[in-house]
Structures are given as C-alpha cells and as structure tokens.
Write a protein that binds this DNA or RNA. Sequence first.
DNA 1: GTAGGGGTTCCAGCAACTGGAAGGTCAAGC
DNA 2: GCTTGACCTTCCAGTTGCTGGAACCCCTAC
Lengths: 132, 132
Amino acid sequence: MNIGDVARRSGLPAKTIRYYEEIGLIRPDRGGNGYRDFSDADMHKLIFVQRARSLGFSVEDCRALLSLWEDRKRASSDVRGLAVTVLDRIEAKVSELLAMKATLSTLVERCHGDDRPDCPILESLSDADRAG
Amino acid sequence: MNIGDVARRSGLPAKTIRYYEEIGLIRPDRGGNGYRDFSDADMHKLIFVQRARSLGFSVEDCRALLSLWEDRKRASSDVRGLAVTVLDRIEAKVSELLAMKATLSTLVERCHGDDRPDCPILESLSDADRAG
DNA sequence: GTAGGGGTTCCAGCAACTGGAAGGTCAAGC
DNA sequence: GCTTGACCTTCCAGTTGCTGGAACCCCTAC
C-alpha cells in the first residue's frame, strides 16, 4: 500500500505518517521506486496510534503502548498504569480549564461590550491592588 | 528595576520576561551597564500579561489586549470579542477532554490491571472491526 | 582580589506536527 | 512517444511559548 491509501484508511495525514516513520514508530518497507510500502501490520499500528492519540496518549505513550501490544507476556497493569497517568493529566487539565472558564465567563457577563471604552475585563487584568 | 525584581514581583520567570521583550510585548529601557531597566509601567504590563495568560489568552491575544488597554478610545466590544473567542476555545477543549476522559475511564475500569496480559484497553485500541 | 549573586547574549530543544519547494514516478490519453 | 496530472520523495522552515545551558560581564561585600 502507498502512503495515500494508508492515509485515507487511517485518517492520518500523509505528513503525519512520514513523521511517525521518522521517529521510528513504524518502519514500512520501500519499493524499488523509493515509495513506502505499507503492510497490513503497519496499517494496523497506525490506526492503533491514531486512536491512542485521540484518547490523549502522547506519541511516546503510543510507542510504549505499541511495544506492550506486541509483547504477548505484557502485564495488563502496565497498560492500565499508562492509561491512569493520562487520565490524571486529562482531569488536571479539565480542572484548570474550568477555573479559567469560570473567571472569564464572569468577566464576559459583566462587560457590556458596546462602543464605550470602560471594560471590566481590562480592569480586572490591570487592577494593581489585586493579588495574583 | 532589574529583571530579577520584576520576575519576583510579577511571578514570571526572568527567561519569560526576556522572551516577551524579544517578541516586542514590552520594551524596557537599558542602563549604562546593559542591564534592562524596568519602569512601573513595564511592571504593570507584565502583571497584566501574566493574568491574561492564566485566563487562557494567547500571547498574541495579550498583544492585542495591551494595545486595547492603552487605547483610551477603545470599544469594550473589541475586548469582549477577544474574551468570547477565548472562552469558546476553552469550552471546546473542555468538551474534547471530557469525551476522552469518558472513554478512557471506562476502559480503565474494565481493565483488571494485574500481571496477566489480556487487556481491554489494548483490545479497544487495536480492534480492527471498529469504526473510527 | 576573589567569591557570590546578579545580569547579558546566543543557541538548542521541547511536542507534534504542518507547509512548501524542488524534484522523481506512474498510469492514462492522444 | 509525449504530455498531463496525480502521486510520491526529501529537506528545510515554521508553529506556540517558553526553558535550559554555556560563556561571559558586572557589582558588592569581605
């Protein structure tokens, strides 16, 4: 399979697939013309990575997951451990974003948003007497 | 004021302050020894930027906010517009993360996480018959 | 004069791609 | 046989927002 087919089937841009090869996540064969020649196993790996990425695993996490995946004697606790770490990261990020959202949406509500210059958003950002 | 004082008072690392100068967010004076010499206005700007960044504004947003802040004839709608854009970005990101979290936490719950190799997390990532 | 704690510049690197230029390859149609 | 156009290749640069480190200057205190 050429890279275009793999891109269509995996949903990953060709550029991304080349990048994944460059960093050693996949190692497709090469045809006589220099084109990459992807096996079904390569394809499967790319779909695996695409899904893992969409769940928040980093590319390095994916590398680890792939090697666990290929290791018949893996312990499921290793996989679970990685997933829990990612879950914690996600939860921390959500909390952070919700705190931002709370503050910012309060400010947005208070700002009338017309052609006058007075603006609680700017006031809050520049208030010299406030902590933080 | 030297960069160290400003760093302590604004909560920003000196490296970050130098970076903000490099990209033209602030333009502190220089003393005869080549040291940056920060005015109260510079200091105020840095605190402003630090707060805006912590609410999710990008550095380029901060540049725009600073120029609105300095423009006495600004329209509060311009500020509000920026804030709403950021708010939308935050909300979109939260939704995305919550979706990831839902899927991932389900998988984590289903994985027994012991020394056996069978693992619903890997199975879900590699399932060939699944869409997406 | 020397030790330390400032400060300066510049270069490299992080994550994870993405865009673009310059050029080779292949299949189809004339 | 030649052209056209879609594909593929590599390489280099840029994105965002810093951060680390090296090599070096400055200032104050002892």
